[in-house]
């Protein structure tokens, strides 16, 4: 009995099993949890984390790290609002935001891969630089959206589900496909698993890493636009601490910080666990201060489980 339980929890699908069990328990015990309204609210609350986690997964899987995502989300949201206010065209605003996000990512990638600067340090630096840009551009104040049509990005619904949730779902599918079914995805896992082996196999490691970071910047811009639309303004201090939530979600989902291991389903589950934990604590009126402790504990437990899993699965390692 205990061994089969252990097998189940430490197996390939262990996280999914735990998640399903937790979901059932929470649905039965927490009032108002399993309602359409709450479910949509929950999903909407994890859109930013979920979207950014898609590319963070690639970043971590290739043995890299990106701390600048929170700043990039805020900055590109700000750019979207300011550019569309200035030009009167939402499309131009969105394009400007996407371009800015991609440029930040590209810069990260070039510094890290081409000049071989540690990713942690590089993105720590760009995190501050980009946050600075957001503050400078807006003079430290929130910038309201002039054209109400901008709100529609997050207010509009398709089949009763808000657009941002569709976008997140689409990203999950697209990046899941990219990871598992394309050469790009396989190369990402390969350079994370053994960069030297990948180089010897003819993978252009430098270019791959630059691409991954550029993609990360672009995706951050999408998240930034959606966030700005939801909070109806560009906020220079938006999404602070997002990088840690996103990395937590990825690690919860079994993405290895040492690179080489990642699954999209894992990341989706990781994102949902983060969302559910927060949602449940809100429903139970648990004070926000305690939520930090709980979130940290969840992360620690997940990592410990993951460690046990890899020890159990690899006697020779």
């Amino acid at each position: 009995m205990t061994t089969s339980l252990k097998k189940l929890l430490l197996g390939e699908q262990g996280l999914l099993v735990i998640f399903a069990a937790a979901f059932v328990v929470v649905s039965l015990t927490v009032p108002n949890f399993l309602t359409e309204r709450n479910m949509l609210g929950l999903l909407q609350s994890v859109v930013t984390i979920g979207v950014v986690a898609c590319t963070m997964m690639f970043c971590l899987a290739s043995r890299d790290f990106d701390l600048s995502v929170g700043s990039t989300v805020a900055f590109s949201g700000m750019v979207a609002v300011m550019a569309s206010n200035a030009t009167g065209s939402i499309v131009l605003g969105l394009l400007a935001a996407l371009a800015c996000g991609a440029i930040v990512g590209l810069a990260n990638g070039i510094v890290i891969a081409r000049f071989r600067i540690n990713a942690l340090i590089t993105t720590l630096a760009t995190m501050q630089i980009v946050r600075g840009f957001a503050l400078i551009a807006s003079d430290g104040r929130a910038v309201g959206i002039n054209d109400p049509a901008f709100y529609q990005l997050s207010l509009s619904k398709f089949l009763t589900v808000p657009t941002p949730i569709w976008v997140m779902g689409l990203f999950f599918v697209v990046f899941g496909f990219l990871l598992n079914r394309t050469v790009f995805g396989k190369n990402t896992l390969a350079i994370g698993g053994n960069p030297e082996a990948s180089r010897l196999a003819g993978v252009d490691v430098v270019r791959m890493r630059i691409w991954i970071f550029a993609l990360q910047g672009l995706v951050c811009a999408v998240a930034g636009v959606l966030l700005a639309s939801r909070i109806t303004s560009g906020q220079p201090n938006a999404a602070t601490g997002l990088e840690l939530s996103v990395i937590s979600a990825c690690v919860l989902g079994g993405v290895s910080l040492a690179g080489g291991r990642a699954t999209m389903t894992g990341v989706v589950v990781g994102v949902l666990i983060m969302g559910i934990a927060e949602n449940v604590m809100n429903l139970l009126n648990i004070q926000a201060f305690y939520q930090y402790v709980v979130r940290g504990l969840i992360l620690l437990i997940a990592v410990l489980l993951d460690n046990m899993r890899s020890v159990a699965g690899r006697p020779r390692a």
């Binding site: 598992n180 079914r181 394309t182 050469v183 790009f184 995805g185 396989k186 190369n187 896992l189 390969a190 994370g192 698993g193 053994n194 030297e196 082996a197 990948s198 010897l200 196999a201 003819g202 993978v203 290895s256 080489g260 291991r261």
Partner: peptide, 30 residues
């Protein structure tokens, strides 16, 4: 064929074997 083993431990044997060939192929899909 390298003296030191240079393989990606988390990828399958098949993926490791064809990593180089896969990268020279034009198609983006596996």
């Amino acid at each position: 064929v390298h003296q030191e083993i240079a393989l990606c431990p988390d990828a399958t044997i098949a993926e490791n074997m064809f990593m180089a060939a896969t990268n020279r192929r034009r198609s983006a899909l596996m």
